[in-house]
């Protein structure tokens, strides 16, 4: 039954290169064509409810891939179908709707709005969605509560520790209850306890049916995913399924044996 559902994300033969000519950097290239050595591009399907970890060494193109999945950047070539629609054909207005409603994005470098309180940060996506002030506040506080920062709601980014900033970014990404959570090293700046907390939150979101893509360097984080991709020099070299798409994430399954 799940197999008949169209994938929520489908990219086909996507490449991304920076610069021109000889000095061009192929951040995403996929396998090379056997004869000519031309990059064929990355192709990838992600099904709804999946929990994918993307691993790879620094500079292997993980963030580049993630930015394209999050509609923050456009590929140099190839197609990206999100829920069956070709993102390349959407205009600015529709793209901002997609970013606002469908995708929760956690940046590698937090990207909080400077000089703005944690509560206001988390309220931002709701404000752009047109949610009323009282409702917005309630939901933002709930999201902060979820990441354990309810008591820091009035603090600005420069008054928060790195880990706390990361958790504000997590709260901001999940406050709109997006169908897709894209996280670029969400635990890169956290100690093991905070890491466990954030991963637990992501596990629960996935158990609730949301599609999750996480970039990580740590095997410990990858253990939470149902599927692990490995990137080397802009190409997927390894794709391992660790748990079924429609089951609970492995970490939860281990905790609560069915």
């Amino acid at each position: 039954m799940a197999a008949t559902k169209p994938p929520v994300i489908r990219i086909s033969r996507v490449t991304k290169s920076y610069g021109q000519g000889d000095s061009a950097v192929h951040a995403l290239r996929g396998p090379s064509a056997p004869g000519t050595g031309e990059p064929l591009g990355v192709s990838l399907d992600i099904e709804e409810g999946d929990y994918v970890a993307v691993m790879g060494s620094s500079g292997s193109g993980k963030s580049t891939l993630m930015n394209i999945l999050g509609c923050l950047d456009v590929p140099t070539s190839g197609r990206y179908l999100l829920d069956g629609t070709d993102v390349g054909h959407l205009d600015e207005g529709r793209l901002s709707l997609v970013r606002n409603r469908k995708i929760g994005f956690i940046f590698q470098s937090f990207n909080l709005v400077p000089r703005t309180t944690a509560l206001a940060q988390v309220e931002l996506p709701l404000a752009y969605a047109g949610v009323r002030a009282a409702e917005r506040r309630r939901r933002a506080l709930a999201a902060l509560e979820l990441v354990g920062l309810a008591d820091r709601a009035g603090h600005k980014p420069n008054e928060l520790s790195g880990g706390q900033q990361q958790r504000v970014a997590v709260a901001r990404a999940l406050v709109t209850a997006p169908a897709m959570l894209l996280a670029d090293e969400p635990t890169g700046n956290l100690d093991s306890r905070s890491t466990a907390e954030v991963l637990a939150i992501i596990d629960r979101l996935n158990a609730a049916g949301r599609t999750v893509v996480v970039i990580t360097h740590e095997d410990e984080v990858a253990l939470h995913a149902k599927r692990v991709l490995r990137l080397v020099d802009g190409a997927i070299v390894d794709d391992v399924r660790r748990a079924p798409v429609d089951g609970p994430p492995p970490a939860l399954a281990a905790e609560v044996p069915a």
Binding site: G70, E92, V98, R101, N111, L124, Y128, R172
Partner: peptide, 9 residues
């Protein structure tokens, strides 16, 4: 950042 969070132009 605002655009990434879905702010229209």
């Amino acid at each position: 950042i605002r655009k990434a969070l879905g702010a229209p132009r």
